[in-house]
Design a binder for these strands. Structure first.
Length: 278
DNA sequence: CCCCAGGTAGGCT
DNA sequence: AGCCTACATGGG
């Protein structure tokens, strides 16, 4: 995608491949504030502002290199969408609807913890819990808080996680952060999707769905298809027969879409959830 | 009162 | 392996 780096900001000339609403309303990240068409985004210990200016999309930040990678700016989403809609039926309206989506490259630890919290929960609550988690344990960064490091989270007690509203997931958060306190997150990313998934499934609170979300939203693995209630609803529209087993359905979709499966899932998820299609 | 939300763990067969 | 249920919490 074409963009220009300037002092303290990135200017995206063709915002048809970059729409903050699509990027953040598609449920891959939870730490952002919306004010009109302006977004404030927090990731790891960094912050950026997204806004429109004369038809340009602007990313304002002190950490240009971090957010260039975070927003996956080197990838050609126009080509990717063309491939998806050209090769497969039943994706056209979903891809058009979420045309400005980008799959983020998020911090692995933050993503694991965030999606443990996401289990059997709704997005406004997830956002609130994560916000209180950062306020309680994150480093103060001048007006906002970083996402807490594993070494800090593993020193907090279960009662703290209860107090911020994490409910029964509090026990998972304690166990997971202890497990991850000395983890090599980069090494996990060098494994195959299946090997990395196996490792993630060993973490308390991480099941198949959370593992796939972490692999997709933090490690850029796209030969996977996280199954949830909305993707399930999309299934029959792809001309396939749901058999009730999420693992098998996911597997068949990966066979169908290959390395584009993760992208296909994200367009479908956003389209079906946003339009409340059943 | 009910049902639902980007599911998972533990127990049972 | 696969199926079942409890699980905190808040909103509709």
């Amino acid at each position: 995608m074409r963009y220009a780096k300037e002092a303290g900001r990135i200017v995206i000339e063709d915002p048809s491949e970059f729409d903050p609403k699509h990027i953040f309303d598609c449920g891959q990240a939870f730490r952002y504030l919306k004010a009109g068409d302006c977004y404030t985004v927090f990731a790891k210990s960094y912050k950026c502002l997204l806004r429109n200016e004369d038809g340009y999309a602007i990313i304002e930040t002190d950490n240009i290199d971090y957010f260039r990678d975070y927003f996956d700016l080197e990838r050609d989403y126009a080509a990717l969408k063309k491939k998806l809609t050209g090769k497969y039926d039943g994706l056209k309206s979903a891809v058009e609807f979420g045309s400005g989506i980008r799959i983020l490259n998020q911090d692995p630890f933050e993503t694991i913890i965030s999606f443990i919290i996401s289990a059997n929960n709704n997005i406004p609550r997830i956002k609130g819990i994560i916000e209180r988690l950062c306020e309680g344990l994150g480093e103060e960064r001048g007006g906002y808080y970083a996402f807490p490091a594993p070494e800090r989270m593993c020193r907090a007690e279960e009662s703290f996680y209860r107090s911020i509203g994490a409910g029964y997931r509090s026990e998972y958060l304690v166990k997971a952060s202890r497990r991850l306190a000395d983890a090599d997150f980069a090494e996990l990313g060098r494994l195959s999707t299946d090997e990395a998934r196996k490792r993630l499934l060993g973490i308390s609170g991480v099941g198949p769905k959370v593992a796939d979300c972490v692999l997709l939203f933090a490690y850029g693995k796209t030969d996977l298809f996280p199954m949830d209630v909305w993707s399930r609803r999309a299934y029959r529209d792809l001309g396939m027969t749901p058999d009730g087993n999420a693992s098998r359905m996911s597997g068949r979709l990966v066979e169908k879409f290959g390395d584009l499966a993760g992208y296909a899932q994200q367009y479908l998820y956003y389209y079906y959830r946003e339009n409340k299609l059943t």
